[in-house]
């Protein structure tokens, strides 16, 4: 398996606060890698640093062999990293279809075909394609945010807490779609607080605590680890 993303020795500060400390991680092509940890551990900060919304003071981030650490966020999207931001940030005043079309903003052509693919993955969105996005339910909005990210043909899709604020049945649905995307060959970096669900789909996982990566291994290994069980899986 080829390495697609490598983060090496990244340090990010919010003013005087040292938010992430010397974080290194890699994602290989076709994998689902998950980053789990408690609130405020620095998971989302790590994702935002990869997508160029935050800047690291040190270290390097390489994507497909090239350094992206100094690129502005829109260039990083063009390179093929799509982020599904936390809290389902969709364009509430646009229709479902317009939201999806915005996902293809960085390129032109072939939009119709991609729309078909996204609608095939999310039949619910097809039913509601003319509806204003703000009127969708929370689960539908999460699907729309994921569909929009897929529209940019990402080589790597980063999901920030896709289960946040969703009913358990919808969490199941979201994760089954993540599995399906994985089966189709999409590489995924998943940030989650729901460690149990995340570990069940992940090929490999990293555990973050107070800005540092404290554990890493395959999903199954970590699900069995006493430390993880105690801290995140309730015994």
């Amino acid at each position: 398996m080829e390495e697609i993303l490598s983060v090496q020795g990244v340090n990010v500060y919010y003013g005087a606060i040292h938010a992430i400390k010397d974080v290194s991680l890699t994602v290989n092509e076709g994998e689902i890698v998950t980053l789990i940890g408690a609130n405020g551990a620095g998971k989302s900060t790590t994702l935002q640093t990869i997508s160029g919304l935050l800047r690291s003071k040190t270290g390097d981030i390489r994507f497909c062999g090239q350094s992206i650490v100094h690129l502005p966020s829109h260039k990083i999207v063009e390179r093929g990293i799509a982020q599904v931001p936390e809290g389902r940030r969709i364009f509430l005043q646009m229709t479902v279809q317009e939201n999806l079309e915005m996902g293809a903003f960085t390129r032109s052509g072939g939009v119709e075909k991609d729309l078909e693919r996204v609608y095939a993955l999310f039949p619910r969105l097809l039913e509601r394609k003319k509806q204003i996005a703000g009127t969708l339910s929370g689960g539908e909005q999460q699907m729309l945010a994921m569909g929009r990210a897929l529209m940019s043909h990402p080589k790597l899709m980063m999901l920030d807490e896709p289960s946040m604020g969703l009913a358990p049945i919808l969490v199941e649905q979201v994760f089954s779609i993540i599995r399906q995307l994985h089966d189709e060959g999409t590489t995924i970096l998943l940030v989650e607080q729901n460690a149990q669900m995340a570990l069940s789909v992940a090929d490999r996982a990293y555990v973050m605590e107070t800005g540092k990566i404290t554990l890493q291994g395959t999903g199954a290994e970590l699900a069995q680890s006493d430390q993880v069980k105690k801290a995140y899986l309730g015994g």
Binding site: L53, V77, A82, V84, I90, M94, M102, G103, F105
Partner: peptide, 19 residues
């Protein structure tokens, strides 16, 4: 559309690659 997307949701606009 990019300008209006920025107005509606800046973070989402950035995440789809709008400069």
């Amino acid at each position: 559309r990019a300008i209006m997307a920025l107005r509606d949701n800046r973070i989402a606009a950035e995440s789809v690659g709008i400069n």
